[in-house]
Design a protein around this nucleic acid. Structure first.
Ligand code: FES
Ligand code: FES
Lengths: 145, 145
DNA sequence: ACTATATGATACTATACCCGTGTCATATAC
DNA sequence: GTATATGACACGGGTATAGTATCATATAGT
């Protein structure tokens, strides 16, 4: 399950992708626009800077901007930047050493197969694609599975 | 992420599927065979009985057995029996009301799409398939079920 | 009937994680 | 110099996880 922290990170990245080219944007602006607690967002942005997804400028007129083009940043990049374990189906899928059974467990192969698909899908969704889709969304679709 | 509890539930179901037709099997036997803490397993089995995946018999010669044929029980059945939220990508995917943004969030559609795929895959993996897969690979391994 | 064996139903605990908040330091534009 | 911005940590309440402990109840075999 994606945590609130990772969800906020995605929102923030989306906002900055939407305003790519507008120069540096402050954390306060992002927090206000995307309904994210300011202090919490500060720590999240700090991590995104640390993982080279964002670049920051301090002082007046400072703020955050994307380190790469929106086309070159995927959802997987953001999720992994925040927490490499957050979206894994089972802990042994990430580190098979965690479970002595992983060498012969029949479930393991299946979970790994699904995990690879999920990661590939998340890796194929760029911020640019998401920003583009924001305008032309189909509201007739159900928003729950 | 699948919890330890759900992982144990799957193991237990696999063991019982492998021994389907052998009559009732005690929790102690399953715990020993599948490396699961006995007390913890007791509570898990209790839940699997409550969700009609297992049937139990009390007293001497009692124990657990599958309520349905191994072909008719999927990994999704077991996972959902233990915790309906455990394998969801994001909370808003399960309950869109949890997030005010779900009505217009571009990420939401993508996550729902992936979630539907994952659920379908888990729903397509039966205990029978897993047992068959495992016995084909591990006939002479020490911890085979 | 008695007993050993099995599940049923709770209550309890200890640790870790999640979701924030608070404080202070530091860099920069004007 | 000051207002504005990020950087680096420390702290805390609430909840979930992973077990444990206890007692009640049902049944097979003697
Ligand atoms: S060891 Fe990974 S799922 Fe069984
Ligand atoms: S509201 Fe569900 S992912 Fe954004």
């Amino acid at each position: 399950m994606i945590t609130r922290e990772t969800d906020y990170a995605i929102r923030a990245m989306l906002y900055l992708a939407h305003h790519a080219g507008d120069g540096a944007i402050s954390a306060a602006t992002v927090a206000e626009a995307m309904d994210i607690p300011y202090r919490f967002l500060r720590r999240i942005l700090s991590r995104l800077v640390g993982t080279n997804l964002l670049v920051s400028t301090r002082g007046k007129q400072g703020g955050l901007r994307l380190a790469r083009d929106p086309e070159e940043v995927s959802l997987l990049d953001v999720v992994e930047a925040m927490d490499p374990e957050v979206i894994t189906l089972n802990s042994c899928v990430l580190k098979s050493a965690l479970c002595a059974r992983s060498a012969y467990c029949a479930v393991h192969d299946e979970l790994c197969r699904i995990q690879i698909y999920v990661n590939a899908e998340l890796g194929a969704i760029s911020l640019a694609k998401l920003v583009e889709h924001e305008s032309g969304r189909n509201d007739d679709l159900p928003h729950t599975i």
